[in-house]
Simulated scan of single mutants.
Amino acid sequence: MARIVYAMEQEISLERESVNEVESFKYLGTVISNTGSLDLEFSAWNIRTLQEVTNTNRLERRTALVCKELARFNIDVVALSETRLPEEGNIRESGKGYTIFWKGKALEEPRIHGVGFTLHSQLVHQHNLAPKAISERLMTVRIPITLNSHLTLISVYAPTMTSTDDDKAVFYTQHDHTIQTVPANNKLVGLGDFNARVGKDHRIWEGIIGRHGIGNCSANGQLLLGLCAEHQLVLTNTIFQLPKRHKTTWRHPRSKHWNTLDYVLTRDRDRGDVHITRSMPGAGDCWTDHRLLISQLSVAEADCQRRIREAQKTWWQRKAAETQSFATNVTCAASMQQQRKYSVPHGHQWAA
């Protein structure tokens, strides 16, 4: 009897948990597309510097100009490279609706490198987001998708070809460790300036490079491909058939040739969630030789998730009702059995 009542309580508790999950299923201020999916707009942008120059006639700060461009493309999350700002900090561009986070070298060190995130301020306040700086080349942020899962983003600014082998080894060791700390059930997106050309050999690097890569592979590209192979990551730039101007992200200062150095990576199992990854030649002049790289990712299927949870709720309600009915019948049967056990048979006299 006690076990039956306990089972009934457990099923009712599970039903309540299912209902609570439906109520707390927050979607970050994302938009529902025509296909019913919940999408986020990501981008990676090497902006060369966020430092202000005193001898300029610009009416707006550099951070404001960058945010203005991001708002024009309706981007939710941006990985910034080569910010060149010292220490660690953040600034809110309230007029543009974005908050910029950065991590740079110490104040007394040269103003080089630097990495950061620009997040839509609504996301920051709704989910109390606080990016975590790993170094002046790596930064992460976790965004809740459902009650029990997150989207982990890694903003990257990798060493250039002229960097020392030690610098490259330190960076890729840190990057490898950062990826390992991401829970397996989390969606993972790495984006930024990897300073690497991966080429187009999709047969050798099957599952990592798609059929639409360009150019040749560099030494840094080999390092990046090795990291992707170890963690089953796909270079989403290479899986879409696009004009070359929408694949390349950086122009060589001497040859004037365009190359791809900026990438958006995700787990191979989630490649179907990426709708598009492309560069934007139309992005405004923000004193950078890198094009803005944009990627659209489905973080959940809205209608599918809703139908599943409604079915779960209905099922738990029906099971709770059946369990309650069964427990009531068992209780009545047990009560009748107890009455028969201790009742005096007709014509029987108790002994004196």
Rank of each mutant, 00 (worst) to 15 (best):
R3V: 06
V5G: 00
Y6L: 12
E9R: 15
R16I: 11
R16G: 02
E17D: 14
V19F: 10
E21W: 04
E21D: 13
V22F: 11
Y27M: 06
L28T: 01
T30A: 10
V31T: 13
E41P: 05
F42A: 04
L50F: 08
E52T: 06
R58E: 11
R58T: 09
L59M: 14
E60S: 12
R61D: 15
R61C: 13
A64Y: 07
V66D: 01
L70G: 06
N74T: 13
D76L: 04
V77E: 04
V78D: 04
A79I: 01
E82P: 05
R84F: 04
L85Y: 02
P86V: 07
G89R: 05
G97S: 05
G97L: 05
G97A: 04
T99M: 05
I100D: 00
K103H: 10
A106Q: 14
P110L: 09
G116M: 02
G116I: 08
H120D: 15
H120V: 06
H120K: 14
V124S: 02
H125S: 13
Q126V: 00
Q126K: 08
N128S: 11
L129Y: 02
M139T: 07
T140G: 05
R142E: 12
P144H: 09
N148I: 04
S149V: 11
T152W: 01
A158P: 02
A158W: 05
T162E: 13
T164Y: 00
D165Q: 11
D167C: 07
D167E: 15
A169I: 03
A169F: 06
A169D: 14
F171P: 01
Y172W: 07
T173D: 15
H175R: 10
T178C: 15
Q180M: 14
Q180G: 07
G190M: 14
L191Y: 03
G192I: 03
D193P: 03
A196W: 01
R197S: 07
V198E: 02
G199D: 04
H202Q: 05
H202N: 11
W205Y: 14
G210E: 09
H212V: 03
G213P: 06
N216E: 15
G226Q: 13
A229P: 05
V234K: 06
L235R: 06
T238N: 03
T238C: 08
L242N: 04
L242Y: 08
K244Y: 10
K244P: 06
R245Q: 10
H246Q: 12
H252L: 00
P253V: 04
R254A: 09
S255L: 09
K256T: 06
W258M: 05
T260S: 10
L261N: 01
L261S: 04
R267F: 05
D270H: 11
R271P: 01
S279F: 09
S279D: 08
G284K: 15
H290K: 04
R291K: 15
L293Y: 07
I294A: 05
Q296F: 08
L297R: 04
A300G: 07
E301P: 00
Q305Y: 10
T314K: 14
A321R: 12
A327G: 01
T328C: 07
T331Q: 12
A334H: 11
Q337Y: 13
Y342R: 15
P345F: 09
G347H: 12
Q349W: 14
Q349P: 02
A352C: 11
